[in-house]
Design a protein around this nucleic acid. Sequence first.
DNA 1: ACGAGGACTGGGCAACATGCTCAATCGTCC
DNA 2: GGACGATTGAGCATGTTGCCCAGTCCTCGT
Lengths: 154, 154
Amino acid sequence: MRGYDAVDRSLLTALAADPRATVVALADRLELSRNTVQARMSRLEASGAFLSFERSIDPVPLGFPLEAFISVHVQQKRLADVVDEIAEIPEVIQAHGLSGSVDLLVRVVCRDAHDLFRIDRDILAIDGVERTETSLAMGELIPFRLRPLLDRRG
Amino acid sequence: MRGYDAVDRSLLTALAADPRATVVALADRLELSRNTVQARMSRLEASGAFLSFERSIDPVPLGFPLEAFISVHVQQKRLADVVDEIAEIPEVIQAHGLSGSVDLLVRVVCRDAHDLFRIDRDILAIDGVERTETSLAMGELIPFRLRPLLDRRG
DNA sequence: ACGAGGACTGGGCAACATGCTCAATCGTCC
DNA sequence: GGACGATTGAGCATGTTGCCCAGTCCTCGT
């Protein structure tokens, strides 16, 4: 299933406003019948509209107040191995392969600056890694959001 | 409330495995009483452990298969204004302020390359923006995860 | 204009979940 | 020992879920 209609989008929006809303509550708010909401929800679920719930957990109260992005330059041929090794570091919470001069954008959280230093060192020590550049995230200036996208006509 | 104990972490882990699990189901799985789970959940909720549900929605089925990171160099003094203007672009789903040579790391999704080109142009046109560098995300090589962190001793 | 297919609706029903309260138990800390 | 907080099991009224059904409404293609 690709592309959602207005009903799907408003369902997602309503869910964003209240993630644990019941089907009945959603039906009420959207002025749809309970059956419709139930059917839509199963379809959304089945179509893979939802990512892991882990994305909705805040690392800060877990004790990781610092976030950083580490740009990694890699010997291309060893990219897969490098990724495997980076994945072993628990503080790495995400990594994207990029086009362009930087090969890998690694997102990490840590307890303090010392922690970050260590993680960077660990990545540099990996065979195939040529260079890294660490940027401390000073804040999420635009917090993750999909609403503007959801609110537009599809 | 800062810092969760083992019970909190296993609750979060269990929730990650099944985001819409009922309190009863969680109690079962963790071999806790229903009351305990209910109490913990309210505390987690109240302590701000959960981020917006939007983070758990996949932009791809919404019709945005392409993701990119745009590094933005800004005249420092105008940073706030630049962020405000960037926030007007719906395809911008997140932005971090960074330490280092890049001031702003903007995460965007788009329908196609043409779309991306337009967004980059829009950002460049903003007063106070000096330079941008666009990197297309070739894939989420390490999908967002907190489990390794959750699984460790707190 | 007709019928078919799909989505939506309202009704009903049994099984289950929730939110709440209570009394009892268990550790830990002073 | 005594006090405190966390946990437990029980109970209860109310709300929710998952399911099924029949009826309606739209949109298609013919």
